[in-house]
Simulated assay, not measured.
Amino acid sequence: MIGWIEACSVMISRYLTLPAPIHRHRIWGPWSRLNVLIYFAYIVVNITVILFHTDSIPQAGRRAGELALINLIFPLSATHLGYLADLLGITWRTCCKIHQASGWMSVALLAFHVIAECQSREFSFPLWAIRNIFTLIGSVSLATLALISLPWLRRRCYEVFLRSHQALTALFLYGTWRHLPDQRLLPRFYLYVSLVMLALTTFPEIVNLCYTNGLFSGNGAPRAFVSFTPEGSLTYPKLRKAAHIHLVLPRSIKIDAGQYINLWMPSVGSWSWLQTHPFIVTSWSRGRHDTIELFVQPRGGMTSDLLSLAAGAPGRPVSFLAMFTGPHGTSEIVDGFETVLLIASGFGISATIPYLKKMIHGYNTCTLHVRRLHLVWQIESIGEKTLALSVRQHQH
């Protein structure tokens, strides 16, 4: 039985999972054959449900509106996708794909719902009616939400996008709740299911946040000590500088290789109290962690401000009040392999350090099967190597 399962897994990987007919693009992709089949089946199922036993376009439009509320259950089921991915046992990237697919499907269904309602003979939309005002508010909120979710716009102002996304979603929900008629209980039931799911995931997330940050333990909140790493930047001007964060925890936690945390540092900048950033944990130990090591490559916003403040105090770390959620993410299983290949480029070498530590420790203690370890590291200059090695030595 195990042989058949392994053979099927190899066949699925060879013909469905690995081949990518749609390659990586700045807007979409990469999509494997399996991704294309899943998306196609998802679209076909929604279209079939809309057209099944419908006699008119308005009836199909009303069914599309209810189906949109069903599709919105997953996107509205959590405020934090990383926590939702942990609950479901899937990767953050997979959770994002499901969130995006169901969200865009809901937008398409609601757009069809609006168009179909406008085609109805009984259509009337007086703006002095309170229900119609909230309908308009919900529609405008959804249209704005879809517009700012476009990749080229989202990446230009990602930090603003996150808070705008949440605010517009709340406004859309309230407008939809006021739009739904009282005599039709089923659409309201779908909306209530989404809100109940949101409450069931948010409450334990808040409890876990308070516990891991030791807010009621009497040990104080976590402190982040940020130091500047300028090695290589003078010799190689094109090399971006980096910052090293040493996060001291009031309560020890268990972190596996490849996991990340979301860090909140409200005193870094004027808008940093609205921002949380994900950082891969570069430290690893077999037991629990009392401290967390992070390696920050500045991009913009809070990370750029953080580097400026750390560079302004050379020779000593700068301390900040911090809070975090996590650890999030799944760790790649390396226990049952004798040969492991790691591939990294540039600053990505810091993400492989926990796996290197874990496998070397497993080899020395005979707790893992790893015997051969190959590391392929692509760098643009020797300065990147000098910088990464300096960070590695600083962690020891």
Rank of each mutant, 00 (worst) to 15 (best):
F203Y: 15
P204E: 07
P204D: 04
E205C: 10
I206D: 07
I206H: 11
V207W: 12
L209E: 09
L209I: 08
Y211L: 14
Y211I: 14
Y211D: 15
N213T: 09
G214L: 04
G214P: 09
L215K: 02
L215W: 13
L215R: 08
F216D: 10
G218K: 11
G218V: 07
G218I: 08
N219M: 11
G220E: 06
G220R: 11
P222H: 07
A224N: 04
A224M: 06
V226R: 09
S227D: 10
F228I: 00
F228D: 13
T229H: 11
T229M: 14
T229R: 11
P230A: 11
P230I: 02
G232V: 03
S233L: 02
S233G: 00
L234Q: 13
T235H: 06
P237A: 06
P237F: 03
P237E: 05
K238A: 09
R240M: 00
A243W: 01
H244Y: 15
H244E: 12
I245H: 09
H246W: 13
L247D: 07
V248Q: 15
V248H: 15
V248Y: 08
R251Q: 14
S252I: 04
S252T: 11
I253E: 09
I253L: 14
K254R: 14
K254C: 05
K254A: 07
A257K: 01
A257Q: 10
G258F: 07
Q259K: 09
Y260K: 02
I261T: 03
N262C: 11
L263C: 08
L263G: 08
M265L: 15
P266M: 09
S267D: 14
G269V: 00
S270R: 12
W271Q: 01
W271N: 01
S272F: 10
S272G: 06
L274N: 00
Q275S: 07
S283V: 10
S283G: 15
W284F: 12
W284I: 05
S285P: 03
S285C: 15
S285F: 07
R286I: 10
G287T: 06
R288I: 05
H289R: 08
H289D: 11
D290H: 12
D290A: 12
D290P: 00
D290Y: 04
T291F: 13
T291I: 11
T291E: 15
E293M: 10
E293A: 12
L294N: 05
F295M: 13
P298V: 01
P298A: 00
P298Y: 03
G300V: 01
G300C: 01
G301S: 12
S304Q: 12
S304E: 09
D305G: 00
L306H: 04
L309D: 03
A310F: 04
A311W: 00
G312R: 04
G312N: 13
A313D: 10
